[in-house]
Design a protein around this nucleic acid. Structure first.
Lengths: 217, 217
DNA sequence: TCAACGGGTATACAATCGTCTACCGGAACA
DNA sequence: TGTTCCGGTAGACGATTGTATACCCGTTGA
């Protein structure tokens, strides 16, 4: 699995890897592959299970951290303060994801390739991973951030959209190191824009009443 | 090029196609490939040029159509009506894109695969295509839809985000035929949410003043 | 003690691959 | 009229591929 990841990160495209190629790079006999995996799909799913759950756990744990520091947004008695903290939360989450992809560059690159790649099995697995992350995010947000009149389903839809958009932002982030700060800002802005829209859609009075200014990130 | 597209749509992954394979499927001698293309990248770029400009032109032309029918949103004397028409515009645009990907299923599938694919050349070309579409969209929208206090750059950023998100919506649309109506609605909702957010960020009074209700799509 | 098994190896096979060299016929053009 | 391209073909090359068969040996467990 290590050999496959390394090769896929350079040669690119897990599915197009040769069985002999990975075996060679792992210092093993080609046939040994069959002792562990049936397919290349099999290998891919195994790798995704490992790295995917690491990512998911990492994100959860990191999202939980600020909550322990008394980061509680539930009371919306002061909307201005609440949304300011929402901004901080968005910033932290974005930083989190982008740090992760920087730390797991190859794994991320290879994984995303499979998202629209050849193998239907891998596509499905990747989609489920992203969806799982969106579900996690929704649950965590519901515990911490009580947005007015934004239902569970709405929040989930927003989370899904955010996760998918972060795929692109992460790509940019990796491919354009010189623009990293700018990209990070764009991502934060995008997320806030969505929440602003969600609030404005349900409680338009809130924003103008409280004279909330959209932060100029 | 036709043979390559057909093969890539079934066997998947343009880069992993064999030169001989394509030639065979085209009923040509393997070496004939070299008469026209240097690389597989070369082939890919040529195909993208052809199909990409078709898509881009199709989208532009279709976006221009309603403008000719007197679809003019420039005057914002009546914001309610203006935003209602914005909704119609979003719906039309979404339908347009989704119809296109249905009509060019293979080309779309293959193209998106290259977006995060092996070849750096193809990745770059695809990113430029998407970006070009976002630029087109921005220009067209600026002519037709005069959103208050939303600058050119802001609109471009929003357009870019929309285009990228439509990549995913289109994937869903193709892969889950039974949910097509629902997916279309989600896409429209997403776009409106963004615009709502953009307006709320700059002119929060507008939404509450005019008692605009976010449409329940 | 002995059999089974899990993980690893060696060898061999037919396919397929990309590419090189060489040849060919028609069109363009001087 | 002759020459030069342009698109296409033929055949051969060595390399590499996935996989099948068969052998190997340490661990486990009855």
């Amino acid at each position: 699995m290590e050999a496959a990841l390394e090769l896929a990160a350079t040669t690119r495209s897990l599915a197009s890897l040769g069985l002999r190629e990975v075996a060679r790079h792992a210092g093993l006999n080609p046939n040994t592959f069959y002792r562990h995996f049936k397919d290349f799909d099999d290998l891919g799913v195994a790798m995704l299970d490992e790295l995917g759950s690491e990512l998911r756990a990492g994100l959860r744990e990191a999202r939980m951290r600020p909550a322990k520091k008394g980061f509680k947004l539930s009371d919306f008695s002061n909307p201005a303060e609440g949304l300011a903290q929402a901004q901080a939360l968005a910033r932290e989450s974005v930083g989190l994801v982008l740090d992760f992809v920087m730390d797991h560059r190859e794994a991320y690159t290879v994984g995303i390739r499979e998202l629209h790649g050849t193998s239907a099995v891998m596509r499905r697995a990747m989609q489920e991973l992203l969806d799982g992350i969106a579900v996690d995010m929704t649950e965590d947000l519901l515990g911490v951030l009580m947005l007015p009149a934004v239902s569970h389903e709405e929040l989930l839809a927003v989370a899904r959209v955010i996760v998918r958009q972060m795929v692109f932002f992460s790509m940019d982030y990796l491919e354009q190191p010189s623009r990293q700060a700018e990209i990070k800002r764009e991502a934060e802005r995008f997320i806030l824009l969505l929440f602003w829209g969600a609030i404005a859609a349900r409680a338009p009075d809130l924003l103008s009443q409280a004279k909330l200014k959209f932060p100029t990130i």
